[in-house]
Simulated scan of single mutants.
Amino acid sequence: MPEIKTQQDIENLNWAVNNFHDGYIVKEQLQADGKLYLKFAGLWGCQLEVWFWGDLEYDTSSVQDNPYWFGSTTLLADGFVYLLDDEYMTVAKITSDYCYFKARHMQYHLIPQEGS
Rank of each mutant, 00 (worst) to 15 (best):
K5A: 07
W44A: 05
Y100D: 12
N18E: 12
E3Y: 06
N12D: 13
L38G: 04
M89R: 06
V17I: 12
E57A: 12
S61N: 15
H109C: 10
D33P: 06
L13D: 11
T73Q: 01
G71Q: 07
Y88F: 06
V91I: 14
C99L: 08
W69Y: 10
Y24S: 01
Y100R: 00
D86E: 10
Q47D: 15
Y100N: 03
P2D: 13
D22R: 02
G23S: 08
Y108P: 08
W15T: 13
C46W: 06
A92E: 15
I4M: 10
G79Q: 05
A41P: 00
I94A: 00
Y100L: 00
Q31W: 01
A103Y: 03
F70E: 06
K39Y: 06
P2R: 09
T95A: 03
H21Y: 14
Q7K: 15
V26T: 07
F80V: 00
V26L: 08
D86L: 02
F52W: 04
E49I: 01
H105L: 07
K35F: 05
V81P: 14
Q31K: 02
Y82P: 00
N19W: 12
T95R: 04
D33S: 04
S61W: 11
L75H: 08
N19I: 05
L110W: 09
C99E: 13
T60G: 05
Y24N: 04
E3Q: 15
T73N: 01
Q29P: 02
S62F: 03
D22V: 00
V26G: 07
W51P: 01
L84N: 10
Q64Y: 06
L38H: 07
W53D: 15
P112Q: 10
S72I: 00
W15Y: 15
E49L: 01
Q47A: 09
K35G: 05
A16D: 09
D55R: 08
Q47I: 02
Y58H: 08
L84R: 04
K35H: 12
L36D: 15
I4L: 10
K93V: 02
H105K: 15
K35E: 15
W51N: 05
G45I: 01
S61Q: 14
A32V: 11
I25T: 05
I4E: 14
G79H: 08
C99K: 11
H21I: 05
G34R: 07
N19V: 05
E87Q: 11
S96Y: 07
G34N: 13
G79L: 07
D65Y: 04
L110T: 10
T95V: 10
S62G: 00
E11I: 14
D9V: 13
Q113F: 02
G54W: 09
K27G: 08
V63M: 13
N66T: 11
E28S: 07
A77Q: 12
L13R: 11
G71L: 06
S96F: 09
K5W: 04
V81H: 06
W51T: 01
